[in-house]
Computed example of a mutant assay.
Amino acid sequence: MKFNKLIAAIAIASLCACSANSQVAKNGVKTPKPIQLFNGKDIKDWTPKIKLHEVGENYANTFRVEDGLLKVRYDGYSDFNQQYGHLAYKKPYSYYLLKVEYRFVGDQTKGGEGWAWRNSGAMLHGQDPKTMLKDQDFPISIEGQLLGGDGKNERTNSNLCTPGTNVVIKDKLFTPHCLSSTSKTYHGDQWVTAEFLVLGDSVIQHILDNQVVLSYNKPQIGGSNVINYDPAQKTDGKLLSEGFIYLQSESHPIDFRKVELYDLSPYKADQTKLKQVVDALLKK
């Protein structure tokens, strides 16, 4: 696989505070300007898709902007009733670094599943929201799972879940639904920055506090863990080289204050340049 050396280099650079990274940055590596997917004012660039509701219907004002924050709230629900929601950005991306700043707040809404307590996610390489059916629960996608702690017990963050997808880990197809990362636990209502390095259909890395906590290859359509989808959208074995980015509503209130993306597609033909840019961005 032609990205193997690049993947190893990025992982090593991300896992340590290497002086070489600082040197590269000081030597004038130009990095792309961040694209603010959330503008701090509204969600006009986003499309809601909530289970049991049509594409574009923001049921009960689930997704809203208040005080400069993108908030997920359930005060209009009498019962959650497995109405899993997803908010899709307006265009797909392929090569990028995504940064999401979020915090869990308040109490889980009535009817939420136990596993969904302080649980949300950033969906990567997702299907077009326009192709989701009314009763579909999750977009076919790769999920960077966001989890909060209970103040006592360990609970890893930035895990992997795979609704209608599989990945490759250590050259073997990984088919279970979820995989825990190596992260610490993030308790309370603290703001957390989760980063996701996505390089087409080659590698995806989950990053917290400048540490790679999970890495895998060849994201692809396959498996189960998604229901009521259009079969035409699920071609098992098809590699996912691009897709839509979603934010989740899974029954626990959450705030997002930043959702920004660095487009890396201009560098994908130059592995050396790509590594330099990624190293510099992860040191910001």
Rank of each mutant, 00 (worst) to 15 (best):
G112T: 01
I10N: 11
E143S: 03
Y246A: 02
T193W: 10
T182H: 05
G243P: 05
T47I: 08
N217Q: 15
F80P: 03
G237K: 07
P231K: 06
D263F: 01
P219M: 14
L281H: 04
P32G: 05
L264D: 00
L274N: 04
S241W: 10
W191F: 09
V226Y: 02
K90Y: 07
Q233V: 10
F80Y: 14
K30R: 10
S251H: 07
Y267E: 10
G188P: 07
S183K: 06
I12W: 15
P129A: 02
S215M: 14
L199A: 09
K30L: 13
F196Q: 08
L261H: 06
F256V: 02
K99F: 13
D263T: 10
Y262A: 03
K218T: 11
F138L: 10
F3A: 13
Q136W: 04
E143W: 03
T185I: 00
K234F: 06
A17F: 15
Y96M: 15
G149I: 01
G223K: 05
I245H: 02
T162F: 08
L239S: 09
L199Y: 08
A269H: 12
K238I: 06
L70M: 08
D209A: 07
G85Q: 02
T156V: 11
N157D: 13
P92E: 06
L281D: 08
F244M: 04
G106M: 05
F80M: 00
R73L: 08
I254Y: 09
H86W: 12
D79S: 14
L69C: 08
D263S: 05
Q211K: 15
V212K: 11
A17K: 15
D42Q: 03
Y267F: 14
H206Y: 09
P129S: 01
H252Y: 05
K90S: 12
D201C: 06
L264W: 01
Q36T: 10
